[in-house]
Amino acid sequence: MTLPALSSQPGTLPLLDTDVLRTFVAIAESGSFTRAARQVFRTPSALSMQIKRLEETLGHPLFVREARQVRLTPEGEMLLSYGRRLLKLNEEAVSQFLAPSLEGTVRFGTPDDVGTRILPGVLTQFARTHPAVQVDVVVGRSTEIRRRMEEGELDLVLVTAGNQGQEAEHGEIVHTEPLVWACREGGVAPRRSPLPVSLANHGCAWRAMALTALDRAGISYRIAYTSEHCAGQEAAMLADLAVAPFPLSLVRAPLRKVDREASLPPLGDYQVVLIRREGIGAASEALAGHVVEVFRDMSH
């Protein structure tokens, strides 16, 4: 027996059922009724009936069923966005009453480029679910915040690492994306010789990846600018004074990815790694869960 997709009272709009929403999101994210059935502990036929009822009630098909997978229709993509938000709000509401009350302080370290992207979302969600926990944030280079964690000053840290970085062996990889060469749109820096490069200081994974790639390719370069923060690299690019290794997601106008005409070597992917200090408490583990969730949402 399957639960109704929606419930309603006469004269009112129907309400989406949380259980059916969870089923819908599981199918959308796994791309398969069979895989989703294992996640929600139901049979594929039961899931199919739930989705059919949901599609009938909403008046739109939500999935295109193909031989070995299913994919979302435009209406399904719209519902997926609402579904994730509704499930998250439901979790927050329930946690206010049922989750154990956490108190204390969590000391969290992050590089500036990573923190800028995730901290607003992480801190907002964490404050809603655990308002009694104080979060102290330290922003700095990966090597510095890792050292401070080893000395017991930080509980959780995010660090960046290349594909061959040893950091990944000590923590959980929460994000992977391409590192690319970037420059000013319409600029001439990529065509200069030796190539002017803007880099972070020693110890940065992006710096190591860029210099290794240039050396292997035999490209003549000069380090024109160095900075503690990626904002310094961006400033040099905006002024058309240098190119820089930059995450693809951060390359926005008036910056652009360097085209093939410059013959610069590929840089590969870099990773963001979450490292926990041994013996951290429940509050730190709860914040770690929020960090992982925010990166997972970014990847969808």
Rank of each mutant, 00 (worst) to 15 (best):
I223Q: 14
R148L: 13
R65Q: 11
V64R: 14
V180F: 02
Q125I: 07
K52S: 12
P44H: 11
A242V: 10
S95V: 08
T116N: 14
V25Q: 10
L158I: 04
A224E: 04
K52F: 02
K257H: 10
L86W: 09
G104T: 11
A217F: 04
E103M: 11
H170N: 08
S101W: 00
E278T: 11
Q50N: 03
A189H: 09
T105H: 02
A288G: 11
R71P: 07
R256L: 08
R141D: 05
A236F: 00
V135T: 01
E151D: 07
R128A: 14
G76N: 12
E75N: 14
I173M: 04
A46S: 04
S263D: 15
H229V: 02
N163F: 09
G152E: 07
V133K: 10
G162Y: 04
A46F: 10
V174R: 03
A99M: 14
A244K: 00
T57R: 12
E172R: 14
Q166A: 15
L248N: 01
H170M: 09
S7V: 15
G11R: 06
V106D: 08
G171C: 06
I51E: 06
S263A: 15
I219K: 01
V20Y: 06
R256P: 03
V106T: 01
A242R: 02
H175P: 00
D17H: 12
L3F: 11
R191W: 14
A161L: 07
E92L: 15
L241Q: 11
L199I: 12
R146D: 13
P14Q: 02
L214E: 05
T105I: 09
T43G: 09
T110Q: 08
P131F: 04
V25N: 03
P178F: 04
I118A: 07
R184P: 01
L179A: 00
R148W: 15
A244Q: 09
A200V: 03
E144A: 06
C204G: 08
E153C: 01
L199R: 09
V157M: 09
M1W: 02
L98Q: 14
A200R: 15
G11W: 08
V273T: 06
G232V: 02
S142I: 01
E103L: 01
G59L: 02
L158V: 00
A99E: 14
L21Q: 08
W181H: 13
E234G: 07
A208K: 06
H300S: 14
M78W: 05
T73W: 12
R128L: 08
D136Q: 15
E144V: 03
A286K: 04
P247Y: 10
I275A: 03
P111L: 05
I173S: 07
H202P: 03
E261Y: 04
G289S: 09
